[in-house]
């Protein structure tokens, strides 16, 4: 099962990200993962939050431009080489990862990667074959 990612347009202006995170904090929205992509002139922040519906409502009211994208959270052993093994599996199966970033969870021994994948059926079957776990919203305490 996939999880929802919120992307927010960032213009090249100091403090915009601080403003957004403050707004979310004030409404008690917990940011579980965030990654910034940028060009010289603008950028976008990709986020996994505990309550994506609430977060998107707040940000839209604030006048931000958003997009919601399905992404995948994959369990990775939290030890040297953990990520490398996962990526090798995907590379062998020719599954392209468009982008990824790590997600914090309060669990031992495991890290999680958020991944945006173009060929999703192949991605799911590849991980299934190797018994690599895809996390559900519930398992990550996301609404």
């Amino acid at each position: 099962m996939n999880i929802h990612q919120i992307s927010v347009f960032l213009e090249n202006r100091t403090g915009q990200l601080a403003e957004i995170t403050k707004l979310l904090a004030e409404s008690n929205v917990d940011i579980r993962a965030i990654s910034i992509a940028e060009t010289a002139d603008y950028g976008l922040a990709r986020m996994i939050v505990d309550d994506s519906h609430k977060a998107s409502t707040i940000l839209l009211q604030h006048g931000d431009i958003l997009s919601m994208t399905p992404v995948w959270a994959v369990e990775v052993p939290d030890r040297p080489g953990g990520l490398s093994e996962l990526l090798a599996v995907l590379a062998d199966a020719h599954v392209d990862v468009e982008y990824m970033y790590s997600l914090f969870a309060h669990k031992d021994d495991h890290a999680y990667m958020v991944m945006r994948i173009s060929d999703e059926p192949k991605f799911i079957s590849t991980l299934g074959d190797r018994q690599i776990k895809i996390m559900t919203k519930a398992e990550l305490d996301l609404k």
Binding site: E11, G43, L44, I65, L66, T69
Partner: peptide, 15 residues
């Protein structure tokens, strides 16, 4: 001004 319909999670598409 950025248009919501042209926005996406992919920087490559916006660019």
């Amino acid at each position: 001004e950025m248009n919501p319909e042209l926005f996406s999670d992919s920087l490559a598409k916006i660019t």
